[in-house]
Nucleic acid binder design. Structure first.
Length: 116
DNA sequence: AAGTTGACTTAAA
DNA sequence: ATTTAAGCCAACT
């Protein structure tokens, strides 16, 4: 019962990349969201990995608040120590285990994709 | 063409 | 809490 497409054309990939950038750009200061949520918002719920790939390899991602994207358990990106400091600098609370306190900082977007 | 690799997720043990 | 396993899918060997 997949109510979503299962393969991406090159064209869809470009749209996806644009949507990801757009969404990440809207994450408010002091909040975080996850790869999976972003993927869902773009309409490609099974492409959480693709979101990570996009932020990691797409030039220009540095200009976005991509440090506000963490994984489903609130862990920060591997090999990117600065992400933690950036989040701390905007008041994000980390639990003793080194994870972001998601219950507190998870961003719940309402109308990211639509513009009625 | 076939196998491996991740800024991933969920579930189970 | 940690580890394992399975599913995932574009990119890369």
């Amino acid at each position: 019962m997949k109510d979503y497409p299962d393969k991406m054309t090159a064209q869809e990939m470009r749209t996806f990349r644009r949507d990801v950038m757009n969404i990440v750009g809207q994450i408010p200061r002091g909040k975080v969201t996850t790869y999976g949520h972003i993927a869902a918002l773009t309409g490609w719920p099974s492409h959480a990995r693709m979101v990570g790939r996009t932020l990691h390899y797409t030039p220009g991602a540095e200009t976005l608040p991509c440090h506000r994207v963490v994984n489903s358990v609130g862990r920060t990106a591997p090999g990117w120590a600065e992400q933690r400091e950036r989040l701390l600098a905007e008041g994000v609370v980390f639990k003793p285990n080194g994870h972001v306190d998601m219950s507190r900082h998870l961003w719940e977007p309402t109308d990211v994709m639509s513009t009625p």
